[in-house]
């Protein structure tokens, strides 16, 4: 199975390559990718240099153009597609059906991957993208069990890629409006979930208070692990008490089920975290490289040492082991 690693900056890309990635994914520094954060992402020149660096180690570079073009402003997204192709991207990761159509028509030889943001979660939906646009790989939404992934993989004519580590979104890939409800900006349209410009943190006698816009998202007691200030992972006050309604603030860690994902026929394993540092990339990529190498030779995998890098210092298998229905 291929290990697909995040790269928010050229330095992170080089780190991913050196740590054992089979491919790195990245995006341009604008609203065309879903990690449009301050100080992050690639210029055109940086992308070309990054691709050259990766290719010298036989590592592929996938360019995420995975937000949804705004009506009347499609040129920004079309230019991103054209420039990524010109830079030598090994594949484009796209979510919007119109943009996939543009890429397939304009660059018929370019390998296309369907982004998780497209939320294609059944063989009929995936088959449409494969037949109509020649999509070669689908990144499956994080709502499926391993057995469902196996069934889908058997039923489709393209490769499947699944997330194995990192942040989890509320289970409506590509359709979440929580961030835009509070800030007017969303990951799908602007490339930012809970944008930093709307976030404030305050220490109140050892208690960390996180706010997004006018809303208090969470209050972490002294010593309690903290989490991102997203509405989906906010702690809500209800008549039954305070708690997490949408999701707990934890990270996905699927290290324990890598054999099952391989048996399911999955082609590629994706690590989330383009917003994270070189230290995260180094630790997670190297950790999973060791896990996969051990799996390949039938050895016992090394102990999972990634807990310190997880949100809330806690991890979950998420929907892979769904036990709520």
């Amino acid at each position: 199975m291929e290990l697909i690693c995040p790269a928010g900056t050229p330095a992170a890309l080089r780190t991913a390559v050196d740590a054992g990635a089979d491919a790195a994914y990245c995006g341009f520094a604008d609203a065309t990718n879903a990690r449009n954060f301050p100080g992050l992402n690639f210029s055109r020149r940086e992308l070309a240099e990054g691709i050259a660096y990766a290719h010298r180690s036989d590592v592929k570079v996938l360019v995420a153009i995975n937000t949804f073009p705004t009506a009347g402003a499609q040129a920004l997204w079309h230019r991103a597609v054209d420039d990524a192709v010109a830079a030598g991207a090994d594949a484009l990761i796209i979510a919007d059906v119109g943009l996939i159509d543009y890429a397939a028509r304009t660059h018929p030889d370019q390998r296309l991957h369907l982004s998780v943001q497209a939320a294609a979660s059944n063989p009929d939906a995936i088959g449409f993208y494969v037949r109509r646009f020649g999509v070669r790989r689908v990144v499956l939404p994080r709502v499926l069990t391993v057995s469902e992934i196996a069934a889908i993989t058997r039923a489709i004519d393209c490769e499947t890629e699944v997330f194995i580590f990192g942040g989890l979104c509320v289970m409506a890939e590509g359709r979440c409006s929580l961030s835009s409800h509070v800030t007017g900006q969303s990951p799908n349209m602007n490339g930012v979930c809970s944008p930093a410009s709307h976030v404030t943190y305050r220490e109140e006698g050892g208690t960390l208070v996180s706010r997004l816009g006018d809303f208090t998202i969470n209050r972490f007691a002294k010593g309690e692990p903290a989490a991102y200030p997203t509405l989906c992972k906010g702690r809500f006050k209800t008549s039954l008490g305070s708690g997490y309604l949408f999701e707990d603030p934890v990270s996905l860690d699927a290290a324990a089920i890598l054999p099952g994902l391989r048996a399911a026929g999955v082609t590629a394993l994706k690590i989330e975290g383009r917003q994270r540092s070189r230290a995260y990339i180094e630790g997670v990529v190297r950790g999973f490289r060791e896990q996969l190498d051990a799996l390949d030779v039938g050895e016992k995998p090394p102990a999972d040492r990634l807990a310190t890098l997880t949100e809330g210092q806690s991890s979950t298998l998420g929907a892979y082991r769904k036990n709520w229905r």
């Binding site: 930093a196 410009s197 230290a279 995260y280 630790g283 310190t308 949100e311």
Partner: peptide
Amino acid sequence: DGDALFFSRDLVVEGDVEAVL
């Protein structure tokens, strides 16, 4: 990793979060 230090509460950030990032 800055996020990990934030999660563990070893790092405290206040003010302009956009500038911090």
